[in-house]
Write a protein that binds this DNA or RNA. Structure first.
Lengths: 339, 339
DNA sequence: ATGAAAGCGCTAACAT
DNA sequence: ATGTTAGCGCTTTCAT
């Protein structure tokens, strides 16, 4: 393995000069620089990031901890974050937490091992009561809906507004008995999550339209998976629950619902209209294609990386944590066609 | 930041003893161990991986470089690899290459920066002519179909056999004019890739059944995306190409094809039967659900990690590179129903 | 413009 | 069973 010292010897200079060349310091004579660069190329030299990090405390790598790596939504998000980080000269390492609180905390503390300059944490397990534990000694940006007003910068979706818009869209298209498929909703107001926030938007839209809230239309999923969506849709149809629209907490769930309704012989959009949330790539290609709410993922990623870079670069500066809520659009496709 | 030295002082022992406790060395008196562990907990100590790595050359982290992180197939694979690595006490960092040759090489050389103990590289850009460049000075396992007989351990899919089986399945179900949708196929025999290998299987099956090869039935995709699949399917239907079955190079392409055929008013499976390759999670939930070939991803992941761990642990040992081809099954669903 | 010295936090090798 | 010494590869500081 070639070290900086080897290069220095080969180029007939000191290690310091090589270091200065590598880090683009001024005050290196062009001739010297050329000689050093040649030696580096000849010896196929690569900096040892561990050694550099030991001195500088920087690795040029940020971590991205997500619940799942085979969930299409997180793939979408990760791609946007990688692109945003790349523009700022940073690498991204993705790690999986399995949506478990302990792993989310582990991701935090392991990142402190200084393999990362900062961490973007997508949390689904941690809640408001864990907010203080986010105060790690490395920069952290929170991506998600579980903790608001926490001690770190935070990027979130426009859950309530977008859900109201999605539900409103179904109402506009003539739906009167709209089901909402969601995860469990906590009892206390501090327990925020995608389900409770999107439920609030759903209820607002119904209220705004003068439609009654019907508890039987709010159905609970064991997980945000296609399997759970399909199963629940089949059950709802089998029990002859009267509904003409479905707002699903995520597109993945909606994909399952489309399948489940097909199994039950329910036609979409003629009998029941369906709308999801996320606008994952697949949604446009389903048959019928899936209407959905599209948060601006690119902007979310940009802001998350911006927040992180700012904290990384101004280490001491304890500016108050910021919050960013992304804009959204309603994407109308076949699953809510007709009226 | 708490260092090992701080812990040593707090516990009234030397740094070495703390190190021995951390690394579970024998010859530490239980009482001492307890005292050290208490000090570690009290001071909230974390090892500095960079420093440890600088000494030992190990990080406990392996890299996984994939073309895309929002491709459902790689998500599936990554999940399996993370699970396999976890069982062996290793962390996994996922990086995106964007399917570009230069980035795949960059992933290799960056990993040499010693952030990783080894790298699992899923290559689609590198070819046989680049095989020698894989001989990095860190352990590498190749996952993919582009290079066979290269200088490193290699895990691949049963492309030819599985494709023959998929095509055979369509024939069994009564198809006689079976289209094959694939990427570009190289001119020289060294240019292997998923398209050329799966094409070989497709042709074998037709030959075995005594069906003619028809060049017009082998169609080329600009990329392995839903968009490309949908577009091509619409074109084929629009040009009144006569076909009653489609074998798609991946499930993702097949998803697009299902959509494109629906756009063209072609019914699946009544008018045309469709089969894919990969068995991604979505395939079971499409309408119609997608028949496909399912390589054993779990086994692929296990072997890839096994290969890598073996190389990491026996650094000097230059055993000949091994190759592992995963087994597969044909999963029959609605898209090839009836006859 | 270049170099020498020191040390980041840790552990292998060798004492004791 | 525990401690001492030395050094991994790099950069910060200060000198020349």
């Amino acid at each position: 393995m070639t070290t900086l010292k080897d290069v220095a010897e080969a180029a007939g200079v000191s290690a310091m000069t090589v270091s200065n060349v590598i880090n683009d310091h001024p005050h290196v004579r062009p001739a010297t620089r050329t000689r050093v660069l040649a030696a580096m190329a000849r010896l196929d030299y690569r900096v040892n990031v561990a050694a550099r990090n030991l001195r500088t405390g920087r690795t040029g790598v940020i971590g991205l901890a997500v619940p799942e790596v085979n969930a299409t939504y997180y793939g979408l998000l990760a791609t946007a974050i990688i692109a945003a980080a790349e523009r700022r000269g940073l690498r991204v390492c993705i790690e999986r937490t399995g949506a478990r609180t302990e792993n989310e905390l582990a991701a935090l503390s392991r990142s402190r091992n200084r393999l990362y300059d900062g961490l973007i944490l997508t949390t689904v397990g941690l809640g408001t009561r864990d907010a203080q534990r986010l105060k790690a000694d490395l920069p952290v940006v929170l991506l998600g809906e579980r903790i608001f007003g926490g001690p770190v910068d935070h990027v979130a979706m426009p859950n309530v507004d977008a859900s109201r818009a999605a539900t409103h869209h179904l109402i506009e298209r003539g739906c009167r008995r709209i089901a909402f498929l969601r995860g469990t909703v906590g009892d206390t107001p501090e327990d925020v999550d995608v389900s409770s926030l999107r439920q609030a938007g759903y209820r607002q839209a119904l209220r705004d339209a003068g439609l009654p809230l019907d508890a039987s239309l709010e159905q609970c999923l064991p997980s945000f998976t296609m399997a759970a969506g399909a199963e629940l849709a089949r059950t709802m149809a089998g029990e002859r629950l009267d509904f003409d629209g479905v707002f699903c907490v995520t597109d993945t769930v909606a994909m399952g619902v489309l399948r489940g309704l097909a199994d039950a012989g329910v036609r979409v959009p003629q009998d029941v209209k369906v709308i999801g949330f996320d606008n994952v790539d697949e949604s446009a290609y389903l048959v019928p294609s899936l209407s959905t709410v599209a948060p601006d993922h690119t902007m979310m990623a940009e802001r998350a990386v911006d927040f992180l870079v700012r904290r990384i670069e101004n280490e001491g500066d304890m500016a108050a944590p910021e919050e960013f809520i992304a804009p959204y659009t309603v994407v109308v496709r076949e699953s809510t066609e007709g009226r």
